[in-house]
């Protein structure tokens, strides 16, 4: 770029460079095509069929938008699932993530026993969500659980469809807040202390300093936190799957896809239609994110 010489395109490179560059482009492209685009397009195509996963591809019968029609009209778990996904996103976004940020700020200020808090809040992140589900099962079980034993209640935490989504969200938030805390803490450590000092000299309160100075400076971390929250909410799956396979008040799009595609059920076409709907919803969010990220850079 620095030279004024006219750029002559690829001919300028030696053969060896061309090969290397070619490989650097082709190999990742292939991987992306093979692992992302081919399955994605395949799912979209299959969503217009009623394939049961058995037999050659030539046996597949196209049924048009039948699957989509059935999903919207006669498949009872679908609309609750959409609703639950949105609730999940809302709770992660408005409660779990701010909570994680709050933890990070508090720990960054240096409360006594910082390390203890830091490790205990981060601990759930190390556990798989499947294990988290199991741990909370011990707490939530109606007859044998800790919570009902202490309070003497008979609330059916995992079984009552009005309660179990919130119970699961507590478990998910418990883990998510720790994750966000760690990400944010790392960011906070990187903020130039002179900024805070300057704010202090100017007479800004601690709250004001955080919202007016620290928070804007942390923009890259904020975006990462935002993206992580989106991704975690959309792919929410393992926890509810462990609890009750995503039924009875815990329906999520991801669990409906799995129920239909994986396993003996093998409603590949129907499940693919659900997956396509999920893809469409994610695309909207991804698109919105890209717009924001690119506009500002």
């Amino acid at each position: 770029m620095a030279s004024k010489r006219k750029y002559r395109g690829i001919d300028q490179l030696s053969t060896r460079d061309k090969v290397i560059v070619g490989l650097m482009v082709v190999v990742p492209t292939l991987i992306v095509l093979w692992l992302v685009w081919l399955p994605a397009i395949g799912s979209v195509l299959l969503s217009f069929t009623n394939w049961d996963g058995i037999g050659p591809l030539s046996d597949i019968k196209f049924v048009g938008v039948q699957n989509y029609h059935d999903i919207a009209t006669i498949y009872p778990p679908f609309w609750p699932a959409i609703q639950h996904n949105l609730i999940w996103l809302g709770v992660m976004f408005f409660i779990a993530t701010p909570l994680g940020i709050l933890f990070a700020v508090l720990i960054d200020r240096g409360v006594a026993g910082t390390r203890f808090y830091q490790s205990s809040i981060y601990l759930p992140v190390v556990l798989s969500l499947a294990l988290v589900g199991f741990i909370w099962q011990l707490i939530y079980s109606r007859d044998q659980g800790l919570l009902n034993a202490i309070t003497g209640g008979t609330t059916d935490w995992y079984g009552d469809p009005d309660v179990n989504l919130w119970a699961a969200l507590v478990a998910a938030s418990w883990r998510h807040a720790g994750y966000i805390m760690l990400l944010y803490l790392a960011g906070l450590k990187g903020v130039d202390p002179s900024l805070r000092e300057a704010a202090k000299i100017d007479g800004a309160s601690e709250t004001k300093t955080f919202f007016r100075v620290v928070f804007p400076v942390m923009r890259p971390i904020n975006i990462i936190v935002l993206v992580v929250t989106f991704i975690e909410s959309l792919r929410a799956f393992d926890l509810v799957w462990v609890i009750n396979k995503g039924r009875n008040g815990l329906e999520l799009i991801s669990t409906l896809v799995t129920q239909n595609v994986v396993g003996e059920a093998s409603r590949i076409g129907f499940g693919s239609a659900l997956a396509t709907i999920m893809l469409a919803i994610s695309s909207v969010l991804v698109f919105a994110y890209l717009r924001i990220a690119m506009k500002e850079d």
């Binding site: 939530y140 109606r142 007859d143 008979t154 059916d156 079984g159 009552d160």
Partner: peptide, 10 residues
């Protein structure tokens, strides 16, 4: 009561 939160083992 409340069968939906209980496993058959319980």
């Amino acid at each position: 009561a409340d069968p939906l939160g209980r496993t058959w083992q319980e």
